[in-house]
Nucleic acid binder design. Structure first.
Lengths: 330, 330
DNA sequence: GTTGGCACTCGGTAGCATCGAGTGCCAACG
DNA sequence: CGTTGGCACTCGATGCTACCGAGTGCCAAC
């Protein structure tokens, strides 16, 4: 696409801009390692890169800054990013140290990633509809309220409060639980929607309500967000921070955003590639993680377009991989 | 403390500053409703208020802004704040509409409060140690891993992953569960720590591990935070936003912050009254909520010191009250 | 094709005058 | 004697000008 010299000049501009947040002039580029020509030549090449859409000039007589196309080229031609020692060590220590509930662990993972990249970090955990049911319970809470509890094979516990509409004693609840257990155990939780009616009418009344309440509960992904504060530090405009924050607050938006990027087979979405106007000044770096060979979730970070891509790509990839391993073992 | 005239002048300054975010001059105060004297008199009084520590001057020849002491006086002498119609209606609609799991409801409550006050909102739900146990279950996940699940009377489900150290078959797990059930059912979950050893050694091995893993799980409060974006909109300095965000991200800090304020019997903590240096420019408005007459949690908002206190106080109080009612019924 | 040289551009900064909101003080007034 | 109008003063904000310098495009020479 670009000849070697243009490429290294572009690379120098991107790296310079990432480091200083200032437009990069021909002088700096000429001094950069990997560029051996004079500043005049650099100027010619930069003019060409600008008319090709890789660079932009905030105003005449200023240096150049990368466009989205420029960042894209930079990212695409990046040599396989490798993690620095300190970060690798930090990740290793984290996964050695962290135990306990998966929710707590995923939340902690966002803090880890955010610390490594100075960006907001996101971990998406998929819904549990397809995980097989291990046990089913119905516990009465009030005369006409019960709690449906299902323990799934992946170790998650799904619960749904059920308004029974009628009063039901323990015996009825137990019968309903037994009925559900026979049709659910070993099958995915989503099967709940197809559990056949129970024979006895009082029991069926309970089962029907559980069927209704339980289905919606398990479907949605769970999103963990961390490091909004470090994200805020990367932007100077308050309105940018504000709009990024409001996006991060909407779980549904975050989920579909990440899914969208992953589905397109990308690991980086730059500015408008995210498909969200408020993220025009942001980039998203994502990696799916797999448990037992199956892709089950996504980790990612959200930072400014002028983020440190090599570091971010490496960190996200390694954390995603380690997270998958960790979840596979237990 | 202050004579009537000083009080209304102080009030006018606080209200003016809250509205405009600009230092308030004697001219504006003289025109304010409730002030009938000339601007010269206002100037004299304002000088007195300043030397008494209620007002401050950013620089000579600028208007006055309230000090923390000024805000404090303003809040303390506020007539019982009453909610405007629109907000009251919004709250009513919210509680009529909202159903489902308590976690989802508390999260939605933060969004409600944040919308009403343009601040970040926080809801703290206490730990469940003291809630009686309804059922106990131990589910094997892997040869030497099990999941301890307890359903509590308040409808919450506590779970803890247990590394067994030894392999245990279903029969042993079931025996352990039965042992735990006999000593736990009807008693607070915290009793888990005092469950006596089981007789059979293989069973006791499991019980011991559960005892260990289960205790830590139930102790901690759960914190829901919402509306960080609206909070960000209230500040101009990025570093303020950043430090507030990093506080909101630390659950432990938020919990102890709110508890501290509630314990001091306050419903408003202004600036340094929060006891946290990074919150110097923030105020905290809190209200406990009660379920069945027992104080079980806290709702609150975190905004700039120049927030709309009457509105905030009213909104937090009403939401806390309605939330308590709502949780009491079912 | 590359490079040094050069005129040019234009944002940023400093200096300076001006403006005006606001103050403190004082003398006059009821 | 408290209140008020008047007045000189302060000082941040605004606007203007000059200037500096980083950076550019272009061109002639190598």
């Amino acid at each position: 696409m670009l000849d070697e010299r243009k490429a290294s000049i572009l690379r120098a501009v991107v790296e310079g801009y990432i480091e200083t947040a200032q437009p990069v002039g021909s002088g700096h580029v000429a001094n950069a390692p990997g560029v051996t020509v004079s500043s005049a030549t650099v100027r010619n090449e930069m003019a060409a890169l600008e008319s090709d859409g890789y660079l932009a000039q905030p105003h005449t007589s200023a240096g150049r800054i990368p466009t989205e196309k420029g960042y894209r080229y930079f990212v695409d031609t990046l040599s396989e990013p490798v993690l620095d020692r300190a970060s690798a060590q930090q990740i290793r220590a984290f996964f050695d140290r962290t135990h306990g509930e998966i929710e707590e662990m995923l939340a902690a993972t966002t803090r880890l990633l955010s610390g490594l990249t100075n960006s907001a970090a996101v971990v998406v955990r998929p819904g549990h509809e397809s995980s097989p049911v291990r046990t089913v319970q119905i516990v009465g809470l009030a005369p006409s309220t019960a709690l449906f509890v299902a323990v799934l094979a992946d170790g998650s516990v799904e619960k749904a409060t059920v308004e029974l509409l009628v009063e039901a004693d323990e015996a009825v609840l137990e019968a309903a639980a037994r009925h559900l257990a026979t049709h659910l155990t070993g099958r995915p939780l989503a099967t709940l929607a197809q559990v056949p009616p129970a024979l006895e009418t009082t029991v069926e009344a309970v089962v029907a309500r559980v069927r209704l309440a339980g289905v919606s509960a398990s479907a949605d992904e769970q999103v963990f967000v961390g490091g909004a504060a470090s994200m805020a530090a990367s932007f100077e405009a308050v309105h940018t921070i504000r709009s990024v924050l409001s996006i991060l607050e909407e779980q549904l938006v975050v989920v579909s955003l990440l899914r969208d990027v992953v589905d397109r087979g990308l690991s980086v979405a730059i500015g408008s590639e995210t498909g969200m106007q408020p993220l025009a000044e942001c980039s998203l770096v994502v990696a799916p993680y797999t448990v037992d060979g199956e892709q089950v979730g996504t980790v990612g970070i959200l930072g400014p377009t002028r983020m440190n891509y090599p570091q971010a790509l490496a960190a996200v990839a390694v954390v995603g991989q380690r997270l998958g391993h960790r979840l596979s073992e237990g």
